[in-house]
Design a protein around this nucleic acid. Structure first.
Lengths: 192, 192
DNA sequence: ACTCTACTGGAGGCAACCCTCCGCTTCAAC
DNA sequence: GTTGAAGCGGAGGGTTGCCTCCAGTAGAGT
């Protein structure tokens, strides 16, 4: 919509079709795919996604010629939301702001099982997503570093990989996941 | 073979068939499967595994009626090796011993992409694997805790999940992976 | 050496999913 | 309101992987 400092916004907008029914179907597909990826992993059957979205399989293929195209759109959508969240957090204390954002990160990243691979993908759109995410999270990180809350021998990419790795693994329950994440984040704090 | 404190050893031994050709094929299958899982993920085609092992698909299915059976055997094999490694490390300094073992952990766990799920699986054999692994790693952990090297508000299960989560994610290179792992392990050290 | 048993391997039927294609429908511009 | 273009959906052909079944083969005890 409005211009944004994050390249991913352009991409998200440019892919959505113009006609009314087409746009509605496009949205339904992305939503359905997000849910499907979240609960059955990144290799759900595309037929299943189309069914969830209430559209024909042909419509899915017209919008997303390959599985990757679909995943890219879902992912870009989440990154986009995440970038906007980073801006809203500027008011908080540096460490607080950073961890709150990481919280959102684990929340939005419903596609997390597949994010692992996306993080190292060379394609243009993933590049843009990564750049946008670093552009969103980098400042929070640097601010926390300048404030002496975060060690200076690491960067935002390290942190995101750490967090996404941990949150993507299976735990007994959320309590354990948070505990472990907290421990790892203790390693991130400055001054040991 | 010889009796061992780790339940997983029994299981590994009990599954291997007696006849010579059968045993040879069994071994070939487990090895082929380990390689295949390592390089193409846990959903390789079983036909491919059989081909790698140089046996017919029928032979594979006789030994391993389901994909899960095959994965269990590969996994149990690795856990078994890992348990034995833990015993050998008793001589080192507590912290050193623990981190060396974690090193082996990430090395042996070629099946790591699938380990994530295995860690929470309820089946008998995974239970035994988990128990064995905790029995092997637990003492190293506790020793490090008694020595004041590791924080006391966590246990071996937390640590293994943390490590396996991080090592299973994609990184630019090994240097980054080790750096991030090191940071997380700093959070594990006592006395912050 | 012989036999009986356990094991072998791959042909083939089945199911799932992929993706294309095209007759029908809906939109929006005029 | 008309019309042409854009979009719709699902039938169906192709591919791939799963798993069974059984005629043939090789090991172990005698």
């Amino acid at each position: 919509m409005t211009d944004s400092p994050f390249p991913v916004s352009e991409i998200v907008a440019s892919r959505r079709p113009h006609r009314k029914d087409a746009a509605r179907n496009y949205d339904a597909l992305v939503t359905a795919a997000r849910e499907a990826f979240a609960e059955r992993g990144a290799d759900v059957s595309l037929e299943d996604v189309a069914r969830r979205a209430g559209v024909g399989i042909g419509t899915l293929y017209r919008n997303f010629p390959t599985r990757r195209d679909l995943f890219e759109s879902v992912y870009a959508d989440e990154v986009n939301a995440l970038c906007r969240a980073a801006v809203d957090l500027a008011g908080l204390e540096p460490w607080e702001a950073l961890t709150s954002w990481l919280d959102r990160f684990t929340g939005y990243m419903v596609t997390k099982r597949a994010v692992r691979e996306a993080l190292n993908d060379e394609s243009e759109i993933f590049q843009a997503c990564r750049d946008s995410m670093y552009a969103a999270g980098g400042p929070l990180m640097e601010r926390a570093q300048k404030a002496g809350a975060v060690r200076t021998d690491m960067e935002i990419g390290d942190l995101l990989r750490m967090v996404s790795g941990i949150t993507a693994t299976a735990f007994d329950d959320d309590a354990q996941r948070n505990r472990v994440l907290g421990i790892a984040l203790d390693g991130v704090r400055a001054g040991r």
